[in-house]
Nucleic acid binder design. Structure first.
Lengths: 248, 248
DNA sequence: CGAGTACTTGAGACGCCTCAAAAAGGGTGG
DNA sequence: CCACCCTTTTTGAGGCGTCTCAAGTACTCG
């Protein structure tokens, strides 16, 4: 359970400063904006790279934020933790995504962030990026749009948690993660990455791990999905969409 | 069920153009920023006032947004509606608040908005405000901060819906609406406004109206609260906070 | 006073939870 | 490659919280 210091600059590797325009995740998520707007990106706010093992803390509720991370490889997630240990996962970040875009506007998080899998990030200096926002309106627009799209995700999730059954919640989560990977070009021939444990799913959907196990079994028995070791195959997308219906 | 056209400019009254600095809600919520940043506010983007009866639609998922409303008097709320009629209430707006601040960045809402009580609003032209944002960075900052604070509310609500029992959800909603009114100077001697029906509460907290009725009765019997006709008195704030505990 | 809306109460059902223990998987070192 | 450990998943039995249906009561407002 030992954790690397979240902002220990001695841990940041400076070798290999691939410019965004030739980076393998350069066309994904937020990196795309970097690339489009700033010809020399990631200069000048780039601080190097950092890697994390599985399930390592990137920041906590009490962290003061000086750096932001953009995912290069692997998955990260944000979550809230109550004092008595209940966890609610808020969102997942895939390659190309900023782990917490709102840090660019306010530095006091009310949630924590972890690596879900082995993770590699590009690290940027918050202050320098803020300054860039002030000078470059179209860059600022991208940052705002990123924050707002997270807000829209939250709205869908509120509907899910408040008004959907377990089956529906799970179907929607699977389809959500599929479409996210599809839109980010991370989907390889019908198989999507699915590194969540059942406990992660439970803490995302407001269920218990045991119940998630049962609903997943049902999905498998009905041949809606097929899952093994970190990947998931959607066998019957129409039936899944049927289950997820009621939304808009 | 007849509804006033949400953007019918012929319905907008232009008389009485109180400047924000002498408006009775001028120090509340977003209006405060208007007042501070723009000496001549609400000019030049002010379009007049509009009033709505109880439970009237201000905009729907398919509206294209040209105006934004700021509450002068009464309450409004935003909600999502599924095709089969399930409703999830997302947030409430009190005097001084923009009914949907994110309209200033993207015009296609994925939710709907209604008046909760009789409602009076100031109407502004979205395009003109956007232009102001481009020219006045500190005004833009306020707008962004407003959007982000809604996002933080959502994060708390996700924890509530995903990880709290009915009792805890209700306690948190009551305390939330209390502190909101307190911070907006709308609280009069221990009594807060509480115009929600039990169905509204249910659709906010992911419960049924029947169950809300029972939990409310319990709260009353335990002398935690005392409610009548649109108002609510918090009799035992400590016990309520105890119930809402687990959060952070 | 009547009509509609909101709230209360009861009985029974169901979805999801809790607890518990066993099985399966995955990683590591010998 | 196997033995071991730790994490994750599966399965069962029973209980609780919340839902559904339904009917009756209390508001509120014209």
């Amino acid at each position: 359970m030992s954790e690397p210091s979240p902002s220990g600059s001695e841990k940041i590797a400076h070798e290999e400063e691939t410019p965004c325009r030739s980076c393998k995740v350069g066309r994904l998520g937020f990196c795309r904006f970097f690339k489009d707007v700033l010809p020399d990106a990631p200069a000048p706010f780039y601080m190097g790279r950092q890697s994390f093992l599985r399930r390592r803390t990137l920041y906590t509720q009490s962290s003061s934020i000086k750096h932001i991370h953009v995912v290069r490889e692997g998955w990260a997630f944000r979550y809230m933790l109550s004092q008595d240990g209940r966890r609610q996962i808020l969102s997942y970040q895939l390659p190309g995504e900023i782990i917490s875009p709102s840090f660019l506007f306010s530095s006091q998080p009310q949630f924590a962030g972890q690596s879900l899998t082995k993770l590699e990030t590009c690290v940027f200096d918050v202050e320098l990026i803020r300054r860039e926002c002030q000078q470059d309106p179209s860059f600022l627009d991208h940052v705002i749009a990123t924050c707002l799209s997270e807000k829209e995700d939250y709205e869908m999730r509120l509907f899910e948690l408040g008004r959907c059954r377990a089956e529906e919640r799970l179907a929607r989560l699977i389809l959500y993660l599929e479409s996210k990977q599809e839109s980010m070009d991370l989907k390889a021939n019908d198989r999507i990455q699915f590194p969540l444990t059942q406990q992660d799913i439970a803490d995302t959907l407001g269920l218990t791990q045991v119940h998630v196990s049962r609903v997943l079994r049902e999905f498998r028995e009905r041949e809606l999905i097929l899952s093994r070791q970190g990947f998931l195959e959607i066998k019957d997308a129409n039936a899944l969409r049927e289950l997820a219906t009621g939304s808009l």
